[in-house]
Simulated assay, not measured.
Amino acid sequence: MSSIIQLHNLSKYFSVGGELHKAVDGITLDIQKGETLGIVGESGSGKTTLGRTLMRLYKPDQGQIFFEGKEITHLPEDKIRPLRKEFQMVFQNPSDSLSPHYNVGEILEEPLLIQDLLTPSERTNKAYEMLEKVGLPKTSYHKRLHEFSGGQRQRIGIARALVLNPKLLIADEPVSALDVSVQAQVLNLLKDLQKEMNLTCVFISHDLNVVHYMSDRVAVLYLGHLLEVAPKKELYTNPIHPYTKSLLSSIPIHDPELRNHSRKQIVLPEKSINPPHLVDVGNGHLVAADVINITTFDTQKEKQDISIG
């Protein structure tokens, strides 16, 4: 499986009150074609900043971004715009990311107009097609956002992101603003569309249950640093970093008989000054080297002796 996105030492900084805030700091990560990579972490961990920097909505301060082998880190706006049809984003709150002054048809056709794709009649037909794909009636075309529920608005946001047939979709907390009863519908829609349109997805969320349902691999962020990356099953059953263990221990367990009432408190390490170096401990499991002690690896890098530091 080949990479669609490669990040090398990617960093994004902001000035907050005269101090430098390292929202994303030294992240190196590959995203494979066709997979769904979940990105988890508490609020302020850098998840959204990473997604927006990856999209080049934010200009990175350090590092490199490669899309299908082509570096796009510092491409000027006139060069990056044609590439935007290949990677799109679904934002957390559709009421903020979609214009209330446009009807739904205009919202869906705008990306095609910006990219100078199709004739006016073809753009209209494409908008109708996308409404059908996301489960909305054709009559939605002439309506405005205030006439729709939150779940329907998010479906419109998804349709707008996919109207260009992108290769990569970044979904930033796409269901966190929705009622629980609607969340499953939107998640299932995303999974169905990913399969139908052969999409690669980056799924950003603080909800570990949702990430488990959606993802093939999971990356853990903490205060702008990437601490652990592994296939979903491996990460959820064999977390290594104390922060990952802390996140997983916070998943609610409804059955009181299954709760661990004697759970020990997990002490998190302080944020390191420099970005952690990730080490492969086997089974596609990468973890920050500062929390493990690796004594030996054979030529296949299989784990032989690992102890928690």
Rank of each mutant, 00 (worst) to 15 (best):
D207S: 12
K133C: 03
P82Y: 00
L131N: 03
I4M: 13
F67W: 10
L193M: 08
G224K: 01
H101S: 13
K271L: 09
G105P: 04
M1S: 14
I5K: 06
V186Q: 00
L131H: 03
H8P: 02
D96T: 15
R84D: 09
I27F: 12
I114R: 09
E71A: 07
G63Q: 10
L268P: 04
S95Y: 13
K232L: 10
T36C: 09
Q154D: 06
K232V: 15
I5S: 07
L117F: 06
E19I: 11
P100N: 08
I158D: 02
N283M: 13
R81N: 10
H212L: 12
L169V: 15
L7M: 14
K245F: 09
L169E: 07
V16L: 15
D25Q: 11
I240S: 11
L145D: 08
H261W: 14
I4Y: 05
F66I: 00
E106V: 04
S262P: 02
L286R: 04
S262C: 04
Y128E: 07
H146R: 14
Y58M: 02
F91K: 08
G284P: 05
P239F: 00
L227D: 00
L29G: 03
I107L: 14
R153F: 01
R144T: 14
I308D: 08
F91N: 03
S250E: 06
G150I: 03
P242W: 08
Y102H: 14
V211E: 05
E106R: 14
L118M: 13
A23I: 10
S2W: 02
D192S: 14
F91S: 05
A127G: 02
V182E: 01
P166W: 06
L98Q: 04
D116A: 14
G309H: 12
F67R: 07
R52K: 15
K33Q: 15
S97E: 06
E110W: 04
G46L: 07
T296A: 12
P100Y: 11
V24L: 09
E122D: 11
I65M: 05
V267M: 11
V211S: 05
